[in-house]
């Protein structure tokens, strides 16, 4: 019967999918004369205007526009899911762990930094900050509290911010996977697994480029189901060609070309793969999976618009912008 629980919410979301930005519209944005022309096109579409077509943009600032769209997507989710919105808390895990990293780094800062925190996490940023400052992690979830305490100890003892980041990032990925495994949502499990795979590959690449040893890699990489951690570490200790070779033999073989090109190209490939796998939900009328797919589709859409607007602001050529925009779900 849980399949029948979200029928009205899913129907509403399927209708909303018609308003997602299409690939043709993104191409129009890329070809727009300048930043202002892009804003004009977005406002005609109601993007950045609270969904009001031909409305007034909330701001001309990219960050503010993107934030307003994120708020709009989450307001809609809260409206259709009511108290079950907690089932989508998995998307807030990266925000909470980011705030944990920020709070730990702030302990060595000479003055307070307010703007390094992100709002809209499952826990208020101030709560995470207070837990770190007072070294009382009891109010945080178990895994977060444990890694927070450990990472704070390491940071205060060694001042090694990178190691601290790596520990927290790994814990965030593990929390994501564990949370997804507790649900019966295939889409959430797919999202968590691909996030873990992408994080592992990126961390392994960075570690390889900075000459980190096996011990570091062991500490930094999370376990995931579709990638062999030991084999990945082994390949990362040899070099990039070995990593590409290893990845070619996995389910992520298609991404090895992007991986070989640049980190940004690989991130884009991961985002596109996730959206591609979510497209099956476009015609699924049951369960929470179509809502998960919509949240991810909105996220990809925001990433694309951010790339285009930033590109236009910085005068990047159209081809450069085009190769960075994400696959659309619409």
């Amino acid at each position: 019967m849980s399949d029948n629980k979200y029928i009205d919410a899913v129907t509403r979301i399927h209708i909303k999918e018609n308003d997602l930005l299409s690939a043709d519209f993104l191409e129009q944005l890329v070809q727009a004369a300048d930043y202002d022309a892009c804003l004009q096109l977005l406002s005609e579409k109601g993007w950045g205007c609270g969904g009001q077509k031909d409305g007034q943009l909330v701001s001309e600032n990219v960050k503010e526009i993107i934030k307003s769209e994120r708020d709009r997507a989450w307001d809609l989710m809260r409206e259709v899911l009511h108290e079950d919105i907690r089932k989508l808390d998995i998307f807030l895990i990266p925000i909470d762990y980011h705030n944990l990293k920020a709070a730990i780094k702030e302990t060595r800062a000479e003055h307070a930094y307010e703007d390094i925190y992100m709002d809209q996490g499952a826990f208020p940023a101030e709560m995470v900050r207070e837990a770190v400052q007072k070294k009382e992690f009891g109010a945080l979830p178990e895994r977060m509290a444990k890694v927070g305490e450990e990472a704070l100890g390491v940071f205060l003892r060694t001042g090694d911010g990178q190691l601290c980041d790596v520990m927290i990032d790994k814990a965030a990925v593990e929390e994501l996977v564990a949370t997804a495994d507790e649900t019966d949502s295939d889409a959430l499990k797919e999202y968590a697994e691909l996030t873990a795979v992408s994080a592992n590959i990126k961390t392994a690449l960075r570690a390889m480029l900075t000459g980190k040893d096996q011990e570091f890699l062991e500490k930094a990489l999370a376990e995931c189901k579709t990638l062999n951690k030991t084999a990945l570490i082994k390949s990362a200790l040899v070099g990039i060609d070995e990593m590409v070779d290893y990845l070619s033999g996995t389910a992520y073989g298609d991404g090895s070309a992007a991986f070989d090109k640049s980190m940004a190209a690989f991130e884009r490939w991961c985002d596109n793969l996730l959206i591609e796998r979510m497209k099956i939900q476009k015609w699924n009328p049951f369960g929470i999976d179509p809502l998960v797919a919509y949240v991810l589709a909105c996220e990809n859409e925001r990433k694309s618009v951010r790339v285009i607007l930033s590109g236009k602001q910085n005068g990047l050529p159209e081809e450069v912008i085009r190769e960075r925009i994400r696959e659309t779900y619409a």
Binding site: N4, I7, D8, V10, T11, R12, I15
Partner: peptide, 10 residues
């Protein structure tokens, strides 16, 4: 339920 969801949007 689906009909109500659809009607609320359209």
């Amino acid at each position: 339920q689906a009909a109500a969801g659809a009607t609320s949007e359209k």
